[in-house]
Design a protein around this nucleic acid. Structure first.
Length: 923
RNA sequence: GGGCCCAUAGCUCAGUGGGAGAGUGCCUCCUUUGCAAGGAGGAUGCCCUGGGUUCGAAUCCCAGUGGGUCCA
């Protein structure tokens, strides 16, 4: 008996006549109104609704969603609008929304923030990438789905301080939850005797609790989770993950009803896909020319009932499971596969397009990092599927079909992003193809197999799928073996991820101090204030002064700390940094100031004013970029400064010069409009409802209320300090844009005085360039271009002249001719550039003579050239010559160069050259 | 957020410290001609930028810029 068994002894079960039974097949415990052979869930049982809809009526996706939400509305739940699928818009620990409860983590579930309503109901779009391999094959898995849910947030009533959590008391718990579930089934006209509640305790993300899987006609239609425990080494419960857990003060009803499954159940189509997006399936089938005879269609229909067993996680061997199905139907496995595969691909395409519509529609920009990478992954996978099955419609149109159905308004941007991505992918494939062909040819020629190392490199660094390598290798007659654990080997190459966790030491002295009252919000222009010194903490360098209240803004939200001074009758100290620790503001100074005394403080207003201008300007630039580039523009990071600031935004292509100018125009229009910049502290859910999650451009603040900054039409949650009117910014100038990673552009800009200074710097540089060229500033580009062209032409000319001169010199025989063995050698000093020496040596060698040319220009340098057929190694000669001037040298046997720093020894060395040549003649 | 790869002729790319190359395209001529093609010759280059090591850097090291790719 697991420790949680008693948790399932519900009075509702008892009243309704449920009995607890054990599945002889899988051993699970379940509750049912009637006595059953098995738990009813595949693989213990089959689907029994295919071709036999199991509710009273058939529902479309939209109708089913509405039926669910209105049922719970009628039962005192408030309907909540769904959140984006990009979960990183309101929390930073996950990328995608995978369940409705994600909407309320971590602040609501921990009790810090109240839920938007209690109890509530929602239908939340979700994306689960981990199911990607199952999509299409099992008939029931989708990557994108809507999780319909009802949630209730409860807090224990026997707490000493019930007010410590943002909600109090119990709304409903396990009995209420199961009863609602039962009643919703009834409202659908389901046969309640067929409902099975399987005990399946849930553990995840540091929380745990009893949970129930709800099975009907072979399909899991809902999960009821009772989140009530947290991980605790001293906890009284030991759960299936081996960790110990204890009860929490809060306990939360977390349910999930798969909208797609419910719709499917109501229609009884062979697969969930046909129930959810029949139009798109029909379109894809026709486009790809997939048509089935009645006989084959019937076969597929039968296979669908059995396909519940196909789950790549569970069915150990995909092929084996397939074979089982084929055997049961009395056909060849190959025949069934040939029949199923195009259909499975089409199902996957429809699902993937819906996934992409959600992701891109919710503003995820494809990139090489973060959720953008996931979008790219899905996009490329979908493209491969589309090509495999022979659908010839452009992918952006397919995604748009889903985006239209889902009601997105930014469809043009979505299509744009898909097209841009497809173009990039096409280039990657082309580049990759060339690379693999070349590699395959190399190895084919050497008659060696392509080593795995190369294949891993191709995948890891160039994005080339191993099957593409196999294909091309076969074409080119090269052999290659891809091991089954290929991706494991790639992972191994990346090494183990050792997370070096930084222990943040809690400062005991700060922990005991009260939060500092901040004056800068109410009085953003304030500069001086009085305060009491609560504590002075000695640090390794200097001291941290803690006051009861302060005008100093501590570093945070990308805004640097205020500087300034603190003083009293005895002493004045400079504040060089300001930080906040748990709401306690620390003023860093070099010398201590009396604890318990009054002090006066004054911030460095010039610095603060510049920071405020830059902070407000950051909001304005973000707003302007959104106007110019599209609604998907979202801040990916920002840093304010005194002389310039930067904002990183998500965008799918480089920002052009024209875009920069347009953004500057829009931004400066906001400045000249001189509208007031206002703040408010509304309830966070109210704020989210009114303005959406685009509020959280700069991160997600905690708390029941959030501080909003309005700049013209722009609204953001922000804790920084701002100017009071946009005109106070003065002016905004974009200094540069750069791509910090694929899909993220950094805009660096300056505001106010800093903008003027930055412009002056640029103009100074330009005017210096103009002066050097002796032309006006406007003529600099043309002149520079002309000079550059002329400079190149002259280089070429000089090269030619050098060669000519060298030939002439060689002909004039300016050097000393000596006989070495039976050849003539020319030893010559010529103080010129290395190019000239080389040309001369070549000219002499072309005459059939050995050349030893030395230069004393700068350092001592030698070039030795030996004509064909003369048994002297030029490299060795140069080595010896260069050694005598304190350096080294070398090169091929017929032509070598070298040198050293000792110019004084040059002449002497050249005099010895004939002897050296003599010695170097090979016997 | 982290890792890896790449930057040389218009294009695609060789080039492991010492004379900057190939294929293709381009120009001229020849042959042939219905077209395609064939032959000979020629021009192509801040070898991404800056710094360092070295007598000497396209090549090695560092930084930057631009691009690609994989993973969480």
């Amino acid at each position: 008996m697991s420790e949680l068994d008693e948790e399932y002894q519900l009075s509702y079960f008892e009243e309704e006549g449920f009995t607890r039974q054990e599945c002889p097949s899988c051993g699970a415990h379940f509750w049912s109104r009637v006595s059953r052979e098995t738990c009813g869930e595949p693989p213990c049982a089959q689907y029994t609704f295919i071709g036999e809809p199991a509710f009273e009526e058939e529902y479309t996706l939209e109708e089913m969603r509405e039926a669910f939400l209105s049922f719970f509305e009628e039962n005192d739940h408030e309907r909540i609008e769904p959140y984006p699928v990009a979960a990183n818009r309101w929390r930073d620990d996950v990328l995608l929304t995978q369940a409705s409860i994600y909407d309320f983590q971590p602040l609501v579930t921990s009790g810090q923030t109240p839920p938007p309503a209690n109890p509530l109901t929602i239908s939340q779009p979700c994306i689960r990438m981990q199911d990607i391999d199952n999509v299409g094959k099992t008939g029931r898995h989708t990557m994108a789905f809507e999780m319909m849910a009802h949630h209730a947030f409860n807090a224990r009533e026997d707490l000493d301080d019930p007010g410590q959590y943002a909600y109090e008391g119990e709304v409903y718990w396990k009995d209420g939850t199961v009863q609602y579930c039962d009643e919703f089934f009834e409202s659908m006209g389901a046969d309640v005797e067929d409902i099975v509640y399987i005990e399946d305790p849930w553990v995840g993300g540091g929380n745990a609790g009893p949970a129930i899987e709800v099975i009907y006609r072979g399909a899991e239609l809902a999960t009821l989770v009772f989140m009530s425990m947290e991980q605790d080494p001293d906890g009284e419960y030991e759960l299936k993950d081996g960790n110990r857990y204890s009860k929490m003060d809060t306990y939360i009803v977390d349910t999930g009803y798969g909208l797609e499954r419910w719709t499917w159940m109501s229609q009884g189509t062979p697969t969930v896909y046909e129930a959810v997006y029949p139009d798109m399936i029909a379109f894809l089938k026709e486009n790809a020319g997939v048509e089935l005879s009645d006989e084959d269609a019937a076969l597929v229909h039968e296979a669908a009932k059995l396909a519940g067993n196909l789950d790549i996680d569970e069915a150990e061997d995909m092929a084996e499971a397939r074979a089982d199905i084929a055997a049961e139907l009395g056909v060849e496995r190959a025949y069934l596969e040939e029949l199923m595969e195009p259909l499975e691909t089409i199902y996957a395409i429809a699902d993937h397009c819906r996934t992409l519509a959600y992701m891109l529609g919710d503003g995820i920009v494809p990139s090489s990092a973060g959720s953008g990478y996931l979008a790219r992954l899905v996009l490329r996978r979908t493209k491969r599927l589309v090509d495999d099955v022979g659908v010839d419609a452009p992918l952006d149109e397919l995604v748009d079909m889903q985006a239209e159905r889902l009601g997105y308004e930014n469809r043009d941007t979505v299509r744009d992003m898909v097209r841009t991505e497809m173009e990039k992918y096409r280039e990657t494939l082309e580049r990759g193809g060339r690379r693999v062909r070349q590699l395959a040819d190399d190895y084919a020629e050497r008659d060696e197999p392509i080593p795995l190392e190369e294949v891993v490199e191709l995948y890891d660094s160039h994005g080339i799928q191993p099957d593409m390598v196999e294909e091309i290798a076969a074409e080119r007659g090269a052999s290659v073996t891809i091991p089954d654990d290929f991706y494991g080997q790639v992972a191994a190459r990346h090494g183990g991820g050792d997370l070096a966790r930084v222990e943040d030491e809690r400062d005991e002295r700060v922990a005991d101090l009260p939060e500092t009252e901040t004056l800068f919000y109410d009085d953003p222009d304030g500069t001086e204030f009085e305060a009491v010194v609560l504590d002075v903490i000695e640090r390794e360098e200097g001291y941290d002064v803690v006051l009861d209240q302060t005008m100093f803004y501590p570093e945070g939200g990308g805004q640097p700390a205020d500087h300034g001074v603190l003083w009293n009758d005895d002493t004045t100290v400079d504040v060089t940094d300001t930080q906040s620790e748990d709401g306690v503001v620390l003023h860093r100074v070099a010398d201590p100031i009396g604890k318990g005394e009054f002090v006066r403080g004054r911030i460095d207003t010039a610095r603060r004013r510049r920071l405020m201008a830059h902070h407000t300007a950051t909001h304005v630039i973000g707003y302007a970029a959104r106007q110019v580039l599209g609604t998907h523009i979202r801040q990916a990071g920002a840093q304010k400064g005194v002389d310039s600031s930067r904002i990183d935004v998500q965008h799918y292509e480089r920002i052009s010069r024209e875009d920069v100018e347009a953004i500057e125009r829009v931004a400066n229009r906001v400045v000249t409009d001189n509208t007031s910049v206002t703040q408010e502290w509304p309830d966070r859910h109210e704020a989210e409802e009114r303005y959406g999650f685009d509020l959280y451009q700069g991160g997600i603040p905690p708390g029941t209320n959030v501080r909003l900054i309005h700049v013209g039409d722009d609204v953001q949650a922000c804790a920084g300090t701002h100017v009071t009117r946009t005109g106070d910014i003065g002016t905004i100038k974009i200094l540069s844009t750069e791509r910090i990673q694929d899909g993220v552009e950094r805009i660096t800009f300056a505001a106010g005085d800093a903008a003027i200074e930055a412009t002056q710097r640029t103009e100074n540089a330009l005017s210096a360039a103009a002066e050097a060229l002796d032309v006006s500033a406007m003529e600099v580009p043309d002149t520079a271009e002309r000079f550059f062209e002329e400079w190149k032409a002259r280089g070429k000319e000089i090269e030619e002249l050098t060669a000519e001169l060298a030939e002439a010199r060689a002909a004039a025989s300016e050097g000393t001719e000596v006989e070495v063995g039976d050849v003539t050698a020319v030893v010559q000093r010529l103080d010129g550039e290395i190019d000239e020496l080389r040309a001369t040596a070549h000219a002499i060698a072309d005459d059939g003579k050995v050349a030893v040319v030395g230069s004393g220009a700068g350092s001592a340098q030698f070039v030795v050239a030996v004509p064909d057929g003369v048994p002297i190694n030029a490299g060795e000669v140069v080595g010896e010559l260069a050694g005598r001037v304190g350096g080294g040298g070398g090169g091929p046997a017929d032509f070598a160069q070298g040198g050293g720093p000792n110019v004084d020894a040059l002449d002497e060395t050249l005099e010895d050259a004939p002897d050296i040549l003599e010695r170097k003649i090979d016997a």
